[in-house]
Design a protein around this nucleic acid. Structure first.
Lengths: 339, 339
DNA sequence: CTGTTAGCGCATTCAA
DNA sequence: TTGAATGCGCTAACAG
C-alpha cells in the first residue's frame, strides 16, 4: 500500500477531494464535526496532510527561502560574523514556519532552485558575479544584505559613517595610519592595494568603509601612504597575519591600524604583541563587526558592533514583509582597551 | 508577459511539448539539429528549462537533501565539530549537484519538508525525540550519523573502541579518574550523573564512549567514583568550566580527566592551569573529536581525531549511493602534551 | 456547507 | 522521430 493521497482519502471517506482539502486548509469551509471526523480518519489512514510539492506547484509558493552566501558554505560556517547572521535568519524563519535552503555564492546556476523557493536572501555580493545578473532578472522576491541591487529591497548598515566614527575615535593628529582592508581588489593573497584596480561597486561594503576612514583622516589632515592600504582576501588569521607583519615592519611604523573586521584586528594585535609593541601606547587598533571573541581577548578590541544576528532577523522579517524599502540598521561603536 | 512554460515554448516553436521536454531531458530522442534549434530558441525566449517544482512533482525527486541537525542551527553553527561536518556534507553535495536544506532538530514536524526533499541525513539524534519516530516511518531515504535507526544506513565511528584507546593511552595504575561526559542524562546544567537515570540509546555516542572508558579502567583495576562522572549539557566553555572546577576541587583530586569533547577538554585545561596544576605532571587530560584549536593551545591536547569533514563527505556519498549498510569510519588517536 | 471541474507545469506511455 | 493523451497531487472557482 503506497502513501495515501488526498484523492484516495476522499474516496475512502466517501467525500469529495475539496472537502478534504478544505479540512486542512480552510477550516471555515466546513462544519467542525465533519472536520474533526476527517482529520482523525486521516491520522488513522496515515495521511498527514496535502503533499507539499503538489501544493507548491499549485499555489506557486513553497515556504522555502534560499539564503545565498557570498562564499562557499565552508567559508561562511567558519566565519563568526556570517554564522551569527545565519543564526538570526534561521531564528526568524523558524518563527515564520519557513525553511532555510543554503546556497553557495560559488554556484553557477540559480535556476536549479528558483522554482523551489519563495525567493532569495542574498548575504553579500556572491563571489560568482554571474549570479548577480541572474538575481536581477529573477521573478521571485530578492532581498540583499550588505550590498544593493537596483529596485530590490535591502538591509544594510551605514558602513561609511560607521567606519568614520571608528576612525575618529582612535585617531590623533600625528598618527601614522595603516588600513587592513577586506576584499578591496581582485587578488587571492594579502597585498598592498597600490595601483591595482579597485573592485568598485560589488564588495562595496569595504569601499564605503574605506571612504569613512579617509573622511576621518582628511579632517585630521592625515594621509594614507601608498603601501599602508592593504588588501586581505578573506577574514582569517593567516591572511591577516601576513598583512599585519608587513605593515608593522614598515617605517615609519604605523601608530594606528584601521581593520575592516574583528578577526583581522585580533590577528593584528597578536602580531603586534609578538613584536613587543604595547597596545594602546605604541599602537592603537580598531576593528569592525563586533564578535564575542574580542571581549575575551586582552586587550579588548575597540570596534563597530553591527549585531549580525539582529541583521539576520531583520533580513528575514523584511523578506517576509513584502516591503521594498532599503533598510538601514543601527550600529554601535564600542571602545575597548585597544584604543 | 509571464514566464514561459514548456507548453508555451512548444506552441511558439510549432512542436509538441514532448519534443521540448526531450530536448532538455533525453537528447537521444531527437535529432541533434532539432535539439540545437530548440535550445537556442529557448534561450531567445528566456526559457531556461523545465520548471523544477513541476519536475519534482512528476518525477518524485527534487535534488534537495535535508540535513537534520541534532540541535538548533544556532548551536550547530557555533560548534566546530558540527560545522566541520556540515562543510563536508556541503562539499560532497555540491559535487553531486544537489542542494542542502538545513533542518533544525528542535522542529516538530518533518512533513513540512519531506515532500520537497529526496531524503534526510540526520546528524546525531535530534533533540526533539518526536522526530525520531517520524524518521523511522519516513518513506524517503534516511541516513543517520553518530547514531542508528533500525533498518537504516548509517555512518559512525567506533566510539567505544576509540574511547577505550584514548583512555588506555593516558591511564596509569594508580590514577584517580574523572569523566567529563557530554549529554549523559536529561538535565540542562552541568552536574554529577550520580543516580539520575541515564538516557540510554539515543545519545548513544556518549554512552559508548563511557563504556570504552570503563573497559579501559576495568583492565587497570580502576573504578570511577560516583561523583566523578559528570554530565555536561552542551559542548561549550561555560558548562565545561563548571564541571571542571567542581571535579578538580574534589579530594582525592583526579589525576586524569577523560573528556568527551575537545572543547570540554580545553576548558578543563584552562581551569586546571588557573588552579596552578601542572599538565601533564599533576593532571593528564584527553579529549575527543580532533579540532584545530587544540593544536594552537598550549599544552596541545591528546585526543581522538574523527575527521568530521570526512565524515560529512562520507555521509553525503553514502546517502547518494543507495547502499543500506552501516559504515564505520576510521579515527586516529593523537597524543599531545596533555598526557 | 459540499461536490464538480479545470488547471498548476511537466514526463511518460503509446500510437502514428 | 514526433504528437496526443493521461496523470503526478493538489486548490480555487463555481455551482449546487
Amino acid at each position: 500500500m503506497s502513501k495515501p493521497t488526498l484523492k484516495s482519502v476522499a474516496k475512502a471517506l466517501g467525500v469529495s477531494t475539496a472537502t478534504i482539502s478544505n479540512a486542512f486548509n480552510r477550516p471555515d469551509q466546513l462544519s467542525v464535526a465533519l472536520r474533526e471526523k476527517i482529520l482523525s480518519a486521516c491520522t488513522e489512514l496515515g495521511y498527514d496532510g496535502p503533499n507539499k510539492a503538489a501544493q507548491s506547484l499549485r499555489k506557486g509558493s513553497s515556504g522555502i527561502v534560499a539564503v545565498i552566501l557570498s562564499d562557499s558554505l565552508e567559508y561562511m560556517v567558519s566565519d563568526p560574523v556570517a554564522s551569527q547572521f545565519l543564526q538570526g535568519v534561521a531564528r526568524e524563519l523558524e518563527r515564520q514556519q519557513k525553511h532555510l535552503l543554503l546556497f553557495s555564492g560559488n554556484s553557477t546556476n540559480l535556476d536549479t532552485i528558483t522554482d523551489f523557493v519563495d525567493g532569495f536572501i542574498c548575504y553579500g555580493a556572491p563571489r560568482n558575479l554571474g549570479l548577480i545578473g541572474q538575481l536581477r532578472q529573477c521573478k521571485k522576491r530578492v532581498l540583499t544584505v550588505d550590498f544593493d541591487l537596483p529596485g530590490r529591497p535591502s538591509v544594510n548598515i551605514d558602513n561609511e559613517q560607521a567606519a568614520y566614527d571608528s576612525a575618529v575615535a582612535v585617531l590623533k593628529p600625528d598618527d601614522v595610519v595603516a588600513v587592513l582592508g577586506l576584499r578591496l581588489i581582485d587578488a587571492l593573497d594579502s597585498r598592498p592595494v597600490a595601483d591595482a584596480p579597485m573592485w568598485d561597486n560589488l564588495s562595496s561594503v569595504s569601499h564605503r568603509r574605506l571612504d569613512g576612514y579617509q573622511r576621518a583622516m582628511g579632517e585630521l589632515g592625515l594621509t594614507l601612504a601608498d603601501d599602508a592600504l592593504w588588501h586581505i582576501p578573506e577574514s582569517n588569521q593567516h591572511f591577516a597575519e601576513v598583512a599585519a607583519k608587513a605593515v608593522l615592519s614598515q617605517s615609519p611604523r604605523p601608530t594606528v591600524l584601521l581593520c575592516m573586521s574583528d578577526l583581522i584586528a585580533l590577528s593584528a594585535m597578536r602580531v603586534a604583541l609578538q613584536l613587543g609593541l604595547q597596545i594602546p601606547e605604541q599602537l592603537r587598533v580598531v576593528g569592525f563587526d563586533g564578535i564575542e571573541e574580542t571581549l575575551r581577548y586582552h586587550p579588548t578590541l575597540s570596534s563597530v558592533w553591527q549585531f549580525s544576528d539582529k541583521k539576520g532577523e531583520a533580513a528575514a522579517r523584511a523578506f517576509q514583509s513584502g516591503l521594498d524599502d532599503n533598510q538601514l540598521l543601527p550600529y554601535e561603536l564600542r571602545l575597548g582597551e585597544s584604543s
